[in-house]
Each structure stands twice: as structure tokens, then as C-alpha cells.
Write a protein that binds this DNA or RNA. Structure first.
Length: 458
RNA sequence: GGCGACAUCGCCAAGUGGUAAGGCAAUGGUCUGCAAAAUCAUUAUCCCCAGUUCGAAUCUGGGUGUCGCCUCCA
């Protein structure tokens, strides 16, 4: 298994700290708003990473934190005129609801920043003792000048950073790149007692504390969007290594952006669609297909046409599964033979190469085609088994059965039986009328040699 | 100013030295009363120029274009 490591800018062979176990930490949301469709990318991708590691026999521990204290929440609280705690509650719930709608598995831990304040204070104290941090008027900063190797993740040099025009020069800082570890509370802001007075921790500290606490000093994979490389992840590394001189994580994985009309989609640019809005129009699996049909590190462009194309592609998989009359397949124990294993192997090989999901999907199409040619239902089992890794076909029973009350379902069956009588009498006009009228109601009929299938369009 | 990414068929996209996967769409055929589905067939020499090589989409140099990071952001 090879993984592209941002730390070394190379694909490297993945070797976990502990054989058979994978510990990973992915930066989660700051809960001040509904998350947008670009935020869905790392959620979906790392969900797949976890599923694949498990598929090949690892025990995976995934941590996805919730940042529930931050300037953004405070601003939002002023805007919405409700307390910060309520804001956090509201959008944390929304986060879980939306993840659920996207069929993303919950992580093993969802630590909230406010539950780890004491540990953060302890880390900051430790950094202060080791001369990596200094206090000015109740604010505490990390001193990047004292940090060895600062910039190694992002490839930036401190000298070059100075050139960048800082919007707000903070004269309290010894070096412009020094970042906040502890921020003094203004009147009315949420606050916690600390050796430096009342205030709140900085964002970069929370991930270090929570990841170490839950995963140990050095864990396997730290992930997130590429925009977190600098400064967030760089600063995490600086703090962790300053404190215990150990690597925070061995592999750093970053997904590319989602663009909208060629520009990065972000909350700051205000050019975003929320995931829940997109989900109102398109299926979760179509969204998944859209993301996974491109390599995770490449930028991806979002527009409706592409989601529509993705929906069609997903629908075609479902056609294959329906054609196989999946729900009525009796034997689940069909053994894979050489032909099946060849496809399975192609899939695993693609995923082993830095999670080449685009190629993996093409293997799913190969399998679908193989079924349609041979009608060998073992291919359907394989398609579903591998599709599940990418998060497809997880709710097959619901998706394949037409969810209607018994009576409505029976009425449709009744109409179909009348239509079949007309067909027998070669009364095509009546037969077609029934089909057209049902189509208008969103019910599509499909004649097969044995029976007539029906389907409710979304 | 510093650093970096990307450019492959109408659209999406895989492919890091050996002669262009796959998906969506389209066109034509088969099948079906007709539809739908399925199936077969057809559709690119890889932004431009120069170089390295027996051989390059893949390596090197130059150019053009697009995007990003250096400030909160997945």
C-alpha cells in the first residue's frame, strides 16, 4: 500500500506504527455553519480510506474533532443573537445529520475542543516552560523562531513568510509568524480560567492535544484539506515536536479543493452550496460518485451537469443490480473463482496505489459489464462487496424496494396486470396509455421476458 | 515578491518511458409489439515550441493559460 505523504512530497510505502492497526486523525468542522459541498470531500474521502483499511484487514481508529470554540462561533453567536454554546449545539447536530444523509460512517471519536481545555492549558504551560511560548498581556504565543524545522510540511521558509503582507500586523508578537496558543477573553466572550488569566485556547493547539490523547504520541495518518497544510498542520507539528520531540504523525494526507467555476469554494468567498441543499436535489451516492471519480489530491470542479452525469452512472449500476433481481438471490455463499478474483485484485491494486478511487470505480464498471454478459450472479455479490468500500450500495434493500404503502403498491400491480392483459390481446394503445399515465406520476414500467418491473423515479 | 499545483475525446476522467482505461452524452446496428434495460460498433496522439531517447501524454528547457498557498477556511 502506497500513500502520498505531504511531509516528504512522495508516495511512500505505508507502514503503521502497530501492525494491523491504523490510527488516523482528520480535522473536523468548526461548527458555526452548515458545511458546504466542498467540506464534504474530506468527509467522504477519509470515510473511504477507513473502509478500505478495514477491508484489507486492519483495525482502524478514526478521530474527527469538533471545534466548538473559536472566533467564528463567537461572531456567529452575535449575528444570530444566541449563546455560543447553542450555536455549537445547533451546527454540531446539523453536521451529524448531514454526514448521515451522505452515508458517511461516524468516526470512532468525535472529541469536542471544549472538553479538553485543561489538557490544552497543560500543553501551553509545558511549551512556556520549554521557552517555546511567551505571554503578552494575557495572550500566549508560540515562538516559531525557537522551533527547529518550522515549515517542513508546507515547504515554507520563515524568511519568505515575512515578505507576505500581513493584513493586521500584531505588534505584540516577536515574530510575525508566531501564532496564538491562548487568547485573552474580551468582555462577554466565553472564557476559561488559566495561568494567564481568563481566555480560550487557539485552534492549532486543540488538534495536537486531542489527537495525542486519543491516538498516542505518534499516530499513523493525519488528514484534512490541503488548505490546512499551512498554517494549521504546520503549527500542530511545531507544538507537538517542541513538547516531546516526537513526530506527531507519520503520514500527512491532504485532499484537493472543490472549485466552483474555477475558483475555490469557501465560506470566506461566499460562493458555496451547503451539502444539505445539494442533497435536496441529488442523491448521496451521486455526490459520492462525483468525488470519487477523481483522484483525491486533484482539484475538482463542481457544477450541476457533472452531478447529473454522476447520477446517471450510479443509476446504471442499480440497473444491473435490479436486472439481477438481487433481492431474490437466494444463495449468498457463491465462491469467487479466478475471473472474479481478477477483478477484485484490480480493485485492490488501484486502491493500494494512493487510493486511486477513479480507477477502482472503473473496475466496478468492468464487473457490472461482466455480469450483464455472463449473468453470473457472483459478479453481483462482488460488485456490492467492493462498491461498499466506496460507500455505494449500502442501503440496497431500501433503494431496490419501492417504498409504498401496501395498498398503493397493490394498485400499481393491479394496473400492471390489466396492462398485461391488453398486451396479450395486442391492444397496444391501451397498454401504452397505462404505461404513459403511470410515467406521468413518476412510475416507470420495464417489461422483461418474465415480468414487468416498476420503479418510482425520484 | 516567495512557494506550489494543474492543462488528456463534446463533458468527466485514469494513465510517470513502449505506442491513449473507464464513465456520461452522441450516432448506427441487434433484441423487444413499442418503450426501457442489455448488447455490438463508431468517436482523441494527449495546450504550444524545442530537446533527450530506438521510442514520450509521460523526462528536460522555454512559452501560453488556469488555479492555489503565504490571513480564518476542508
Amino acid at each position: 500500500m502506497k500513500i502520498y505523504n505531504t511531509l516528504t512530497n512522495k508516495k511512500e510505502e505505508f507502514i503503521p506504527v502497530e501492525h494491523g492497526k491504523v490510527r488516523m486523525y482528520v480535522c473536523g468542522p468548526t461548527v458555526y455553519n452548515y458545511f458546504h459541498i466542498g467540506n464534504a470531500r474530506p468527509l467522504i474521502f477519509f470515510d473511504v480510506v477507513k473502509k478500505f483499511f478495514e477491508y484489507i484487514g486492519n483495525e482502524v481508529t478514526l478521530v474527527r474533532n469538533i471545534t466548538d470554540i473559536d472566533d467564528k462561533l463567537i461572531n456567529r453567536s452575535i449575528e444570530e443573537k444566541i449563546p455560543v454554546v447553542k450555536i455549537a449545539e445547533k451546527y454540531t447536530k446539523a453536521f451529524f445529520d448531514d454526514c448521515n444523509a451522505l452515508e458517511i460512517n461516524p468516526a470512532d471519536y468525535h472529541p469536542r475542543a471544549t472538553e479538553y481545555i485543561n489538557d490544552m492549558i497543560n500543553l501551553i504551560k509545558e511549551l512556556e516552560e520549554k521557552k517555546f511560548a511567551y505571554e503578552v498581556n494575557g495572550d500566549v504565543y508560540f515562538s516559531v523562531s525557537n522551533s527547529v524545522g518550522y515549515g517542513k510540511l508546507s515547504g515554507k521558509k520563515l524568511e519568505d513568510l515575512q515578505v507576505g503582507a500581513r493584513i493586521e500586523a500584531n505588534k505584540q508578537k516577536k515574530h510575525p509568524a508566531d501564532f496564538t496558543l491562548w487568547k485573552k477573553a474580551k468582555p462577554g466572550e466565553p472564557k476559561w480560567a488559566s495561568p494567564w488569566g481568563e481566555g480560550r485556547p487557539g485552534w492549532h493547539t486543540e488538534c495536537v492535544v486531542m489527537s495525542r490523547k486519543l491516538l498516542g504520541d505518534t499516530f499513523d495518518i493525519h488528514g484534512g484539506g490541503i488548505d490546512l497544510v499551512f498554517p494549521h498542520h504546520e503549527n500542530e507539528i511545531a507544538q507537538a515536536e517542541a513538547s516531546n520531540n516526537q513526530k506527531l504523525a507519520n503520514y500527512w494526507m491532504h485532499n484537493g479543493y472543490l472549485n466552483i467555476e474555477g475558483e475555490k469554494m469557501s465560506k470566506s468567498l461566499n460562493n458555496f452550496f451547503t451539502t444539505r441543499d445539494v442533497l435536496k436535489k441529488y442523491d448521496a451516492e451521486a455526490i459520492r460518485f462525483f468525488f470519487l471519480s477523481k483522484h483525491y489530491r486533484s482539484p475538482i470542479d463542481f457544477n450541476e451537469n457533472i452531478i447529473i452525469e454522476s447520477s446517471q452512472a450510479v443509476k446504471n449500476f442499480y440497473n444491473t443490480i435490479k436486472n439481477a433481481d438481487y433481492l431474490n438471490i437466494k444463495d449468498n455463499g457463491s465462491e469467487y473463482t479466478e475471473v472474479h478474483l481478477l477483478h477484485k485484485n484490480n480493485f485492490v491494486t488501484a486502491m493500494n496505489d494512493d487510493f486511486n478511487t477513479a480507477k477502482a470505480i472503473s473496475v466496478l464498471f468492468d464487473i457490472s459489464k461482466a455480469y450483464n454478459k455472463t449473468k453470473d450472479k457472483t459478479f453481483i455479490h462482488l460488485l456490492i462487496e467492493l462498491g461498499n468500500i466506496l460507500g455505494f450500495f449500502l442501503e440496497l434493500k431500501d433503494k431496490l424496494s419501492n417504498d409504498l404503502s401496501d395498498i398503493s403498491g397493490e394498485l400499481i400491480e393491479l394496473l400492471i396486470s390489466y396492462r398485461n392483459r391488453f398486451k396479450k390481446e395486442k391492444n397496444w394503445e391501451m397498454a401504452d396509455t397505462i404505461r404513459t399515465d403511470l410515467k406521468k406520476m413518476g412510475i416507470t414500467l420495464k417489461d422483461t421476458p418474465e415480468r414487468t418491473d416498476w420503479n418510482i423515479e425520484k
